[in-house]
């Protein structure tokens, strides 16, 4: 195996991992606050089209990223209002958000079909970013570094800050948090908006970095992998990083199988692997720990204070 091959593999894996890592980090915070938002896929698509749209309109990918975050966050607010104000079922509302996001992003995307945006690539000098070896460190879009930095930031926020502790408390026992005097709804709105923004940036990675153009349903189900990843990681940010790269490697194997004719198994099998692994990982975890381990106790339950 040549060094070039290993570098190419790493670059591919990092690219495949970044969107699911971003979306999963956002969903981790949402779920730690006790809310199950199954609309990740829809929010990623909204982020993808908003990021792309802003980039081709302003020729500024940094504004594009802000647009992607805003698109994801705004669409998540629709979910937040239904779930927090009207106490609608979180599972059904999340699924609806995915369907809605898929449809609305396609509608907005009609006017952007055929456009090509500049790739939001490395911002390091070309001598570093395009170097045959150094590109393994410097050759990525700023979104990649942002995702990696957010792992310890989210972990530190949840574990060591007072706000993070309050957020966990809200997810653990919403009624108690309310009776102590914390704003359960306020915390959850903020968490859902953060989750939406992160999913939006994750989605924008597809339309701004991987293929700098818009295509319907271009996130191809990665939102669902992000959701499974949160459970797979046992609601811990550090394990989320490991899990995301594990799935990234599986997805890279599919590409490799297709491209190289490495074919003792059909490439469809490799394509199915991440999803199959999701099922297996979830089964193994639930068998090992029936109580759900680290799962927030109020996950998915509506908040109904007595007042």
């Amino acid at each position: 195996m040549s060094t070039e091959f290993i570098i190419a593999a790493i670059v591919t894996i990092v690219g495949l991992t970044t969107p699911i890592l971003l979306a999963a980090l956002g969903e981790l915070v949402v779920e730690k606050a006790g809310v199950l938002n199954l609309g990740v896929e829809g929010m990623m698509l909204m982020g993808a089209i908003c990021g792309f749209g802003v980039t081709v309109s302003t020729f500024n990918p940094w504004l594009g990223i802000l647009g992607a975050a805003a698109g994801g966050a705004l669409s998540s607010m629709l979910f937040a209002v239904l779930v927090l104000e009207l106490n609608s079922n979180q599972v059904a509302t999340g699924l609806a958000l995915t369907i809605f996001g898929t449809g609305l992003s396609s509608l907005i995307g009609l006017s952007y079909t055929g456009f090509i945006a500049p790739v939001f690539g490395s911002v390091f000098p070309a001598s570093l970013a395009n170097d045959a070896y150094l590109k393994v460190i410097f050759g990525y879009s700023p979104i990649v570094y942002f995702a990696l930095i957010m792992v310890p930031v989210v972990a530190w926020f949840l574990k060591s800050t007072r706000s993070g502790m309050i957020l966990r408390a809200v997810g653990e026992n919403d009624l108690s948090a309310h009776s102590i005097g914390y704003s359960v709804k306020g915390v959850r709105y903020a968490a859902i908006a953060f989750g939406g923004a992160m999913a939006g940036i994750g989605g924008a990675y597809f339309s701004m970095v991987i293929t700098p153009m818009w295509a319907e349903k271009m996130t191809a189900g990665r939102g669902w992998i992000a959701l499974a990843l949160v459970v797979f990681a046992g609601w811990r940010a550090g394990r989320l990083l490991v899990g995301a790269y594990f799935f990234g490697i599986l997805m890279a194997l599919e590409l490799y199988a297709k491209a190289s004719g490495f074919s003792f198994l059909p490439s469809q099998f490799w394509a199915a692997m991440p999803y199959l692994m999701t099922v297996i990982a979830l089964s193994v975890i639930s068998m090992r720990d029936r109580s759900g381990g680290n799962a927030p106790a109020c996950l998915g339950k509506p908040f109904l204070p007595s007042t």
Binding site: N173, L175, P296, A297
Partner: peptide, 11 residues
């Protein structure tokens, strides 16, 4: 008790 089961006494 308005306690948070998965958290420590101190928290």
């Amino acid at each position: 008790f308005s306690l948070f089961e998965a958290m420590t006494v101190l928290e």
